[in-house]
Write a protein that binds this DNA or RNA. Structure first.
Lengths: 340, 340
DNA sequence: GAATAAATTGCAATCGATTGCAATAAGCTG
DNA sequence: CAGCTTATTGCAATCGATTGCAATTTATTC
């Protein structure tokens, strides 16, 4: 029953008794072709389950109608996608690309080691790129812009980039989180995160802003370099924060995963959250509402972000300029910071 | 600075003073071409950052070197990828495909509504498909096999499929989880999950197996249809399980996300976990170790699963047969079930 | 009814790389 | 040195669809 060789446009043309060019135009509903001819060709195509060969079309039109999404990693952590936040935004991007008629080529760690400009763009695999997470200010991103590749980045805009960067207002988010902790009476607040990531650095700056505004001097012993995982948050808290406990009364974690790890380490030692130590995370992943105590966090608007990434990139593909955007964030108050 | 038109094989050939065919062969290191010629051509290609046009190559060789990964959804839930488990296995698949020199086309909900055989396969966008989550016994999957499309499925094998299904031994997992609860003294154990998904149905059957073996009669009021989210677990527990509380003393949730939702609902009402109600989940997502109390769960071997999916599919592409596989699962004991 | 405009359709080139087969050059044998 | 291998290279067709331009048919105008 299985067809050995699949139908080609030529087959359809023959069956419809027209030339290939007419068939091609008919299928794309080109008005220059007679209405009836169009319908006839389309019907025959449908009957035979004919699908245009995407490869041939791409070659001829010089458009792949494909976008490569590249997820950057820590050179260190080097593990597969882990942060739930990524999945969130990835899902939005996938849906949005599909809606716009684009396919999505997903790339993770390993490919990333290579040069993705040549791999995805020079080789014409993709029309454009979406890069998620500038990471530790990756110089490969700069190279991309010099090479004239259409791409957009999810991350932190410094203002000097030559390419559009869509991202949350991380600094405002950091301020929001820490001000909230201060309002709830915290005096000694720790920061957990890896500031070599620009986004995290911004959150850290927001942390500093809030402390300064409150007239609190910062303590380097409370600012701990922490990877993007619950485990890192857990270990770091256990090793570096527990000893500070009599004074430590608040934690601002750069991601919800880190926050949950930290929370675990505290609860395990019988430290009361939020009474003794209040915690605020960042991202608002799905689990944040369902851990105990539930996690107060700074919500990123992934939905809007994903849509903007796609629309900005498509704009660029159309030759129009696209601008960077800083998306507002929102504090979601839950139990981990709610002190009576 | 930016090149207006990118290099083609013809350009390289001209620069190297050879014909296109020789250039092509030289670049692919075909031994029929003189060693020195090969090196010269390769060097020139490197100098000019030449990359073979993937589209043209695909057209000519009739191979896209691309695999489409399709994530099925509930027709109802209809939301973007949410379950952290998916991200896990997706990451493994992505890495493995890359390692094998394949690109990965990711498809989610929206495209899924359409007919993906024609979209991905007939149109030659992909050489093969990996389908994740058979969902509610999707008839589209059956169609695929009839149409002779190379594909593999992550899910639950019933034994009668004509295609390879890789998946965990869900039934054994269910037995493992529930036996564990029984050993820890639970007598009235609830099941949370949507048994219209074959995988979940298997976990449910394992649940029944264990109860039967223990001589416990099952109670329909304890078997609750629950979607794949923490929220669903939370609501279902709140509405249907809390009322049963004096007797209810154990919960087997079909996923960790559901388990966390359920746990939240209990803790919120002051119900002690695991003392009053013990909980076991399924998947072992990253967060399971870091919630409080940490979650006992049945771990799926996503790493092995992802690799097997890829290798099975590649086998099929090579014309070899591939067989279904049932992967062993493992109980990870944590606090949510540890009663003194 | 001839002339001109408008509506349809087809011819043939093109996108960029791969590959079977033929052609040429170089090496070897007796 | 003729005759036969073997090593290299190039010619030209091919993958399947798209599109500029020309050709044909039909409609419209004076």
């Amino acid at each position: 029953m299985k067809q050995t060789r699949s139908m080609t446009l030529a087959d359809i043309a023959r069956l419809a008794g027209v030339s290939e060019s007419t068939a091609s135009r008919a299928l794309r509903d080109n008005p220059v072709i007679n209405q009836q001819t169009r319908e006839r060709v389309q019907q025959i195509a449908r009957q035979h389950q004919f699908k245009v060969n995407a490869t041939a079309r791409s070659l001829r039109t010089q458009k792949s109608h494909t976008i490569a999404v590249i997820i950057l990693f820590d050179a260190k952590t080097q593990q597969a996608i882990t942060d739930p936040f990524l999945l969130d935004i990835l899902g939005v991007i996938a849906d949005e690309l599909t809606r716009q008629g684009y396919d999505m080529l997903l790339s993770t760690s390993k490919t990333t080691d290579k040069d993705w400009r040549s791999y995805y763009f020079d080789s014409k695999r993709a029309d454009g790129l979406i890069v998620i997470g500038q990471g530790e200010h990756d110089e490969r991103v700069d190279q991309l812009s010099q090479a004239g590749v259409p791409f957009v980045v999810w991350g932190a805009a410094t203002g000097s980039e030559k390419f559009p960067v869509i991202g949350s207002d991380n600094r405002a988010g950091g301020r929001l989180a820490v001000s909230h902790l201060l309002v709830h009476g915290c005096k000694r607040i720790a920061f957990l995160g890896d500031i070599r990531h620009t986004e995290i650095e911004m959150r850290y700056l927001g942390y500093l802003d809030a402390l300064e505004q409150a007239g609190i001097t910062t303590d380097p012993a409370l600012q701990l370099n922490t990877d993007f995982t619950a485990q890192a948050g857990y270990l770091q808290t256990q090793q570096a924060l527990l000893p500070q406990l009599p004074v430590l009364d608040g934690i601002f974690a750069a991601s919800d995963a880190i926050a949950m790890g930290a929370m675990k380490a505290l609860l395990e030692q019988g430290v009361k959250v939020p009474q003794q130590v209040a915690i605020v995370g960042f991202d608002d992943i799905a689990m944040s509402a369902y851990c105990t105590p539930s996690l107060t966090t700074v919500k990123q608007d992934t939905h809007r972000g994903g849509k903007l990434l796609v629309s900005s990139l498509l704009q660029k593909l159309n030759g129009q300029g696209a601008v960077s955007r800083l998306l507002p964030v929102k504090l979601i108050e839950r139990q981990s910071s709610k002190r009576k």
